[in-house]
Design a binder for these strands. Structure first.
Lengths: 335, 335
DNA sequence: TAGGATGATGGGAGCGGTTCCACACCGCGA
DNA sequence: TCGCGGTGTGGAACCGCTCCCATCATCCTA
């Protein structure tokens, strides 16, 4: 049975209120008394019960993080950022993972109902209006990372710019027939990054006065295998693309495999640009767009903590920049 | 201000005790009363406060998970398994990440002191004896995943067998000069899997009557780059290995890069076996050892939940099997 | 019809903290 | 010497729930 504040008080010969005051370092405690209490606390290895503290203060010292598939490296990286920012703040990180569509809704209810957490971070998922309504009306601070909602604060990464950089790079190399491999347009989670990246590609093309051929755009589940099949389809086309922008490195790897499967070469026959800069990207020499994933998680968490401390809703709409990493999968088109 | 049990009781015209009984579906409640209470609960969208519940029951409904680097895909995969097993159990998952050595100790203290969690899962880290002592004497159920301690229950994967399978595969192909690329022997986290895998390699070699050349063993940080340098060193040797077993796929990728950097070919000049079967392994055709990572997390969490329910310590020492996935990076040695 | 067994219920106590109020004690000036 | 304000302090009340005990209604049996 763990030590309670009462035993500390007895042992130190003071009242429970005084111990509490020491714990919350309230100013009105005699230095000598404080010293004595602190000694007893150390001696007994006393740690106040979070549950009791929460009950009387109405705060839980938990921050909830709702994430989609932990299989996505980008999600994990953001989660790491959140964890790093939370660590040392006194807040614990409670992870709610919405791996499947059915779990999505339950996770939102679990996380936002009752008094489970003091604040909520939602990564890469767009909450429904009713969820937003419930959460905000419950006074629960909420921040989105890599997601958009007109009523909510967010930290996002400049996906449009990322797509633009990728396409512009190919254009500058001299490519004209540029394709795009993206995520399916409408997912139950409302992932939007792929769409935004595509938007960036289009805008770069438009700026360069190069028409975008809709036949060179293909979407599907963001797996290596699906991407490979999509790209095989594109390349079998009469007017095949000479350059491809992919919405993720995983898909870019699939694209590379497709090119090779057709007996073609990267970058001589087809240039490929990925997105994410995952570890193997460097290994295979993939030209890609790097995003500050870790930082986005950290920034979101930091802003949320401020809001929780102030008891207000976070105010931030920040867009972090991306960076093009040129490696070996892009080159001027032959012929 | 959220609804409390008192308001539900008033509105339903019953006592608080009765509402509590309904919530915990205790048998002794008249069906009609229960019905009425449930209606009011739904009507008011009432959710009992976890903090209050915890305080009076002495349970927090939190399970703590201590993990090392979330950058390791294997750790994330196990975490997914834990999360899946916890989901729907009513328990929330609190993640403590020990990214750095300094944080390691603090994380253990945070997680085990006070009444923060009802049970603890430690992934891939070996707790110190004093930590074990403190946690168990506090009556906190604890289970290790991918780690060993003589006093603690565990779920591990058969690393020795994995190493053995990998080496045996190379031996059967006719290799005799077999090397090993592993993790540094002593890390602050006490990672042991690399060592066990090496042990398996040795035992397979011994069983086949093939001597193991200590010059063909190299260890270093488990990154692609470090592995590449190590392998370049090995291959520059007078009597270079024809086959390599690597303690992780990441290292195997580094090894492949090294082989190529030296103008040699995989598998014609050097056969390579990885470990983990991460996503890109299939992509690059890496022969590797697949382990039930997700399952190990799930099994550990399930056993812990049972123990928490029974109020006892978990009793399990389970070793899960591995599987060799033969792809394109292994072949009989030339010459 | 009285008495006992049984089942359903109300409500007090307690979980371990925080907060607030009352009070003891101090030094001060009148 | 007395009264005053300020400072530290002890302890009651409370946070929202569970648990347990006492109470009461009901039904069965002698």
């Amino acid at each position: 049975m763990p030590i309670t504040i009462r035993e500390v008080a007895e042992r130190a010969g003071v009242g429970r209120g005084t111990v509490s005051r020491v714990l919350n370092d309230s100013p009105k405690v005699d230095p000598r008394t404080r010293q004595r209490v602190l000694e007893v606390i150390r001696e007994l290895d006393f740690v106040p019960s979070p549950a009791a503290r929460h009950l009387s203060m109405g705060r839980t010292m938990n921050i909830g993080v709702i994430v989609p598939f932990l299989t996505r490296p980008s999600v994990v990286e953001r989660l790491r950022g959140v964890e790093a920012a939370l660590s040392g703040s006194g807040y614990d990180m409670v992870v709610y993972s919405a791996e499947t569509v059915e779990r999505r809704d339950r996770v939102f209810r679990d996380a936002s109902r009752g008094h489970r957490v003091d604040g909520l971070i939602v990564v890469s998922i767009r909450p429904h209006d009713v969820e937003v309504e419930r959460i905000t009306s419950a006074g629960l601070p909420l921040i989105l990372i890599d997601a958009y909602h007109r009523l909510l604060p967010r930290v996002v990464i400049d996906d449009v710019q990322g797509g633009r950089l990728a396409a512009r790079h190919l254009l500058e190399l001299g490519h004209r027939r540029i394709g795009f491999i993206g995520d399916v347009p409408r997912t139950p989670f409302h992932f939007v990054s792929s769409r935004l990246r595509f938007q960036g590609v289009r805008s770069a093309m438009a700026a360069a006065g190069v028409p975008m051929d809709p036949d060179l755009v293909a979407t599907g589940a963001p797996s290596l295998e699906v991407a490979r099949e999509l790209v095989i389809g594109l390349l079998s086309n009469a007017a095949a693309p000479t350059g491809l922008v992919c919405a993720s490195d995983t898909q870019a790897l699939g694209a590379m495999e497709a090119v090779r499967a057709l007996g073609l070469r990267v970058p001589e026959d087809v240039s490929i640009v990925g997105y994410d800069d995952i570890e193997v990207a460097g290994y295979v020499g993939l030209t890609t767009v790097r995003q500050p994933l870790f930082e986005s998680g950290g920034l979101g968490a930091a802003r949320l903590l401020e809001a929780v401390a102030r008891g207000s809703i976070p105010v931030i709409r920040e867009t972090l920049p991306v960076e093009l990493i040129v490696r070996a999968t892009t080159a001027p088109p032959e012929a």
